[in-house]
Simulated assay, not measured.
Amino acid sequence: MSKLIASVDQRTNIVGQNRLELLIFRLIGEQPFGINVFKVREVLQCPELTEMPGASPCVRGIAHLRGVPITVIDLSEATGGKRIENLKTAFVLVTEYNRTTQGFLVGGVDRIVNINWEQIMPPPKGAGANHYLTAVTKVDNKLVQVIDVEKVFAEISPIDEEVSEDVKKQVTDIDLSALTVLVADDSSVARNQVKRALSSIGVNVELVNDGRQALNWLEEKAKEMGGDITSKVPLLISDIEMPEMDGYTLTTSVKNHPDLRKVHIVLHSSLSGVFNEAMVQKVGADQFIAKFHPDELASAVRKWMAEP
């Protein structure tokens, strides 16, 4: 099954073209789910698990992979479904996510599909605030659901979202009150994390759900201001994985726009693979920050909002 995962060098050819490779898997039943292949280091049949006393019920245990302990999370149970009972037929998706390596227990793995981000749509409106989806798409006439893994992590292992007092003191030397940061992220959890961190240092924040909305917002702002917007909106913080338009394509579009190209762009993503630094240079972004470290984010905001 590990042969499903191709080399990073091969897959980077589609990055920046608003395309992705989606690993299709199942939890319980036949409903297909998807995860970006770039998040996945390895796919293997569920190994022997060692229980963790006191851990969340969704944490099924620790897997020892080549001497390295990996926490294994039951993705079905973590998203409100039934526990995956038959570990002998289950698989573990070993992922790099938010600066950590962990495994997601799934019921079965299907295949990898190459798809355009424009075919990835936001979840339907009216689904409420408690669902676990960031996007949906169709593959072979079946609806594939993309799970909001950031929400899963936030519930199982909450992280410190506060900017330290030392960093707060460092940003008091510039007046941020007249400036706005645009934040684009398809995860409501991630958007709110960024907003709380930046609001704590006095930054005005506008939130949008995907790259298409971000580009439209910036273009409208340029029309209002009659050209260059950096005196009011000097910085865009963007996720990479987003429905309709990904962060790489958004960056390229902004940097090629005569009224937007001076906007600084920080790509802020849970994708922590080594390809990111090269892609930042390729598409013209100013910085890459792996999610989620509030002090790094606040320091980057101070740097790029202070620069002309």
Rank of each mutant, 00 (worst) to 15 (best):
R191L: 01
P158M: 05
Q102C: 10
I159L: 08
F292V: 05
R66G: 04
N216Q: 10
L75F: 12
D140W: 02
G227Q: 09
M242P: 11
Q145A: 13
K303D: 00
Q45N: 12
V72R: 03
S238G: 06
P123V: 05
E219N: 04
L22D: 09
R83Q: 15
P53N: 13
A178L: 01
D259R: 01
L176S: 09
K255S: 13
R83Y: 12
E48P: 03
S164P: 14
S187F: 10
K3N: 15
A300H: 01
E150I: 03
S272V: 10
M245G: 07
Y97K: 07
A197G: 10
T101E: 14
A78I: 11
I84R: 03
L207N: 05
V274I: 14
E30M: 06
A300E: 05
P122W: 02
P158A: 01
V139A: 00
P57D: 09
L207H: 06
L218S: 08
A178M: 03
H268Q: 06
G54Y: 07
T50A: 10
M279K: 15
I28T: 10
V274N: 06
T71D: 06
K221A: 14
A135N: 09
T95G: 02
V152P: 01
V208M: 02
K291G: 10
D110I: 15
D295A: 15
L215K: 08
E96V: 05
S231V: 06
I115T: 12
I229K: 03
G126H: 11
R60T: 14
A190R: 08
N36Y: 02
E21P: 01
V92Q: 00
L198K: 14
E296V: 06
Q170K: 15
V144H: 04
K169N: 13
D246R: 11
Y248Q: 05
G227K: 08
T230I: 15
H264Y: 05
V94G: 02
V254P: 10
R99L: 15
R261F: 13
E307W: 02
D166N: 12
Q10G: 12
V136W: 02
I174R: 09
A184F: 09
V139S: 00
A129Q: 09
S7A: 08
E165N: 09
Q193H: 15
R212A: 11
L267W: 04
I237T: 08
M305L: 07
E307T: 10
I156V: 07
P294S: 14
P32T: 06
